[in-house]
């Protein structure tokens, strides 16, 4: 189902890396400070780069009329949304996780907390894609849709951000980060159950 130009996901990954690399340059090369802010920086950068690619999720299909055909497909629209979200995650979320070890070194992160970061990203980035799909479906047909999209979905990303960062911070402090990871897992399951329904409903609205 993923029919997209490869350049899209490269742009997202490069954006992610550049944002993260800007921080040591801006804050200064103090290893302690970098270690402290590392998880926050990586998470915020991941959030922003997920945003960057989000508005493309349904927009191309909407513009060229494919969306009408997808809505008219005998398969439930919810499954189609889920497939598109999976494709989005594979092309943007997964590459972010793959480059994140490099960035963890840039930010002087401990090995142990790095592993926790990877787990949070694995649980968190699909959640971002799922939540983002609602926003992407809602903005179809709107003018200045990119800005509108960030206003709609960035607030919804906050819980993921909070628990993602605090899981890593817990492990930096030497405390178990299990509770945060469980909550992240819960958010992921909840959003994978509810978001396709919400997105499909707003796609039908967009078609009318």
């Amino acid at each position: 189902m993923a029919f997209r130009n490869g350049t899209d996901s490269w742009v997202v990954v490069m954006f992610f890396m550049i944002v993260v690399i800007l921080f040591p340059l801006g804050v200064g090369p103090e290893p302690d400070i970098l270690n402290k802010i590392s998880s926050g920086v990586i998470w915020v950068a991941a959030l922003l780069s997920a945003m960057l690619s989000m508005d493309r999720l349904f927009h191309v299909d909407y513009d060229d009329g494919s969306l009408e055909l997808l809505v008219l497909h005998p398969q439930p629209l919810e499954f189609i949304v889920l497939a598109k979200v999976l494709a989005h995650w594979l092309t943007t979320g997964l590459p972010l996780i793959i480059v994140s070890p490099l960035l963890a070194i840039f930010l002087n992160m401990d090995i142990s907390s790095y592993f926790v970061l990877i787990i949070t990203l694995f649980l968190g980035t699909p959640t971002l894609s799922l939540i983002g799909s609602i926003g992407a479906a809602l903005i179809l047909g709107a003018r200045r849709s990119g800005a509108l999209l960030s206003l709609i979905i960035l607030p919804l990303f906050i819980p993921v951000l909070i628990f993602g960062v605090s899981a890593v911070e817990a492990s930096i402090l030497g405390v178990s980060s299990k509770p945060q990871l469980l909550i992240l897992g819960g958010l992921f399951l909840l959003s994978s159950a509810l978001c396709p329904i919400a997105s499909a409903a707003s796609l039908r609205q967009a078609i009318e």
Partner: peptide, 18 residues
């Protein structure tokens, strides 16, 4: 969903991926 298999719709837009 059942009705969808009975018809084919051709709209103004061509639904073609560049």
């Amino acid at each position: 969903r059942d009705f969808c298999i009975y018809f084919h719709y051709v709209g103004h837009q061509d639904a073609i991926k560049n």
